[in-house]
């Protein structure tokens, strides 16, 4: 026969229905004869019901739900053979990684035309404005910290940019642009010797993603578009919405490292980062 201390020790497994029949019967026998334990058990039961009713975690954000279903859609369209082998091997960090990642994305892109959300149009306009008036930047120089700090004085959000030079990209400078009541950061990079790449950054926005053209790569949905001879790539993470603009084919994809060379949960897009 169990004594009170043994019974109390088995209280949780008993209420959780984890005991075998023999043990359960022993507990029940004791409970019939012991008002002290009986009251304890029923109070504990009430408490556990309270926990069940009050401890449910909040529902997943709608954004997470959409990302999951979008990633699954993308995945289901991958050729079956490739899928059976599992996910493509993670591209090793290093000098070749950037080019490899860019090449992979370009292969995925194919031909694209898509409806253009306003932010992309704004980014293209800013890119052209810079090309027409290269002296229109508020702050110039390759020191990321200085440029970011100057722009952040007038922005309502933090900029996250890699502190170290990435691949062939050099920061030229930046400015704050206004679009109605929102403000965005416009950063200008030089890629290689003569290509210019613009990056527009805003706080995260609802981005209308065209299902046919969107590229899901390493957790992020990229939305490419071809506008008036410029190539653009738009995407969002939880911190920012980004638009890359370039007139040279492929340049925007190489430039992805601008945004993914920093940040703490960036291993998800390790293919884009280079040696960091």
């Amino acid at each position: 026969m169990y004594d009170c201390s043994t019974v109390i020790k088995l209280l949780h497994p008993y209420l959780d229905r984890e005991l075998d029949v023999k043990e359960s019967v022993r507990i029940q026998t004791h409970l019939r004869e012991c008002p002290y334990c009986r009251e304890m058990f029923s109070a504990e039961q009430v408490f556990q019901d309270l926990v069940r009713q009050n401890v449910a975690p909040p529902p997943a954000p709608e954004f997470a739900r959409r990302c999951v279903t979008a990633a699954l859609s993308r995945e289901s369209r991958r050729p079956r053979l490739q899928r059976l082998r599992g996910r493509p091997a993670r591209i090793a960090a290093g000098a070749g990684a950037v080019a490899a990642a860019a090449a992979l994305v370009i292969v995925l892109v194919g031909v694209f035309t898509t409806a253009v959300p306003g932010l992309v149009t704004l980014a293209v306009a800013q890119h052209r404005a810079y090309l027409d008036h290269p002296d229109s930047l508020e702050v110039t120089g390759g020191d990321v910290a200085v440029v970011a700090a100057r722009l952040e004085e007038r922005l309502h959000f933090k900029l996250r940019l890699p502190a170290e030079p990435v691949a062939d990209l050099r920061l030229i400078g930046g400015r704050v642009v206004e679009d109605g009541d929102r403000r965005a950061a416009h950063l200008v990079y030089r890629l290689g010797d003569r290509q210019t790449v613009s990056l527009l950054m805003t706080p995260p926005q609802e981005v209308r993603v065209s299902g046919r053209n969107a590229i899901a790569f390493k957790n992020i949905l990229f939305n490419p578009a071809d506008i008036a001879g410029y190539q653009t790539l738009q995407w969002s993470d939880r911190r920012h919405t980004y638009v890359l603009v370039s007139s040279e084919p492929g340049a925007v994809y190489q430039a992805c490292v601008i945004c993914h060379g920093s940040g703490q949960s960036r291993d998800a897009i390790a293919g884009f980062t280079s040696g960091t």
Partner: peptide
């Protein structure tokens, strides 16, 4: 944190889907 939770859940679903096929 919600950033990592988001990434983790999305990766988990992708992986589950691949296993589901196999």
């Amino acid at each position: 944190n919600s950033d990592d939770a988001h990434d983790l859940v999305q990766d988990a679903y992708l992986r589950a889907y691949r296993f589901y096929h196999r």
